[in-house]
Write a protein that binds this DNA or RNA. Structure first.
Lengths: 109, 109
DNA sequence: GAAATCAATCGTAATATTGCGATTGATGGG
DNA sequence: CCCATCAATCGCAATATTACGATTGATTTC
């Protein structure tokens, strides 16, 4: 118990869920927005910006990196993070498709 | 510990996170897709369709209802669930805005 | 009214997530 | 080489999520 029963659902359903989950945290949204704004970032800046501990932010960055949304390259002592535009656009497409299905005229109850 | 520190983030960031979280589960995605497809549904059908226990599906329906994405009206012994098109379109707009910010030409690292 | 049916709720167990202090590993400057 | 700095990782605690059996409450049917 306690684990999501992924075998009951389609590959697409599981993938969309994972994509949503990757972004479904205010800290990760803040990180993404920050990266979008200044178009490049080192982790230290994010620690100062967000107010969370360094270990916590590093963990959120790891999650975003694991789904490919961001990438980090070592830049001297610090690490430069930025959004991967290809993956970002894939996400946009998937989300757009998901919400586009709606035929909003019919409302049965 | 263990709790998300919502006070560190903007109202918008927390709201987007909650919206994503509401959908970030394959069962809830399956429910939404099913509701979109047949445009109306009773809970029993979903139990047969998804393979999860009745209590579990009822719980997922409750979560979707709590964010306003679906609404249920009592129809005899069963309950008729359907998507609220207004909230659905709000979600679409928020998600579209979130992903639209990208200026995908620049990639720093 | 009794039995049947459907969905919500309760209680509980298992697992996942969030957050942080402390440590580690790598790099640059002196 | 030694020290400072930055980010990743480890280990832990607190909380949240997921799932289900059992029960409850409402409604329909007989």
């Amino acid at each position: 118990m306690g684990t999501t029963k992924t075998d009951l659902f389609t590959k697409e359903q599981n993938e969309i869920a994972l994509m949503m989950k990757a972004i479904a945290h205010p800290a990760r949204i803040a990180i993404l927005q920050e990266l979008l704004k200044i178009n490049a970032c080192v982790c230290g800046d994010l620690v100062n910006e967000l107010g969370l501990a360094q270990a916590t932010i590093s963990q959120h960055l790891k999650e975003l990196k694991s789904v490919g949304l961001i990438q980090g390259t070592i830049e001297g002592t610090s690490v430069c993070y930025c959004i991967d535009p290809v993956v970002w656009n894939e996400y946009r497409q998937v989300f757009t498709d998901f919400f586009m299905v709606m035929d909003n005229t019919n409302k049965c109850c």
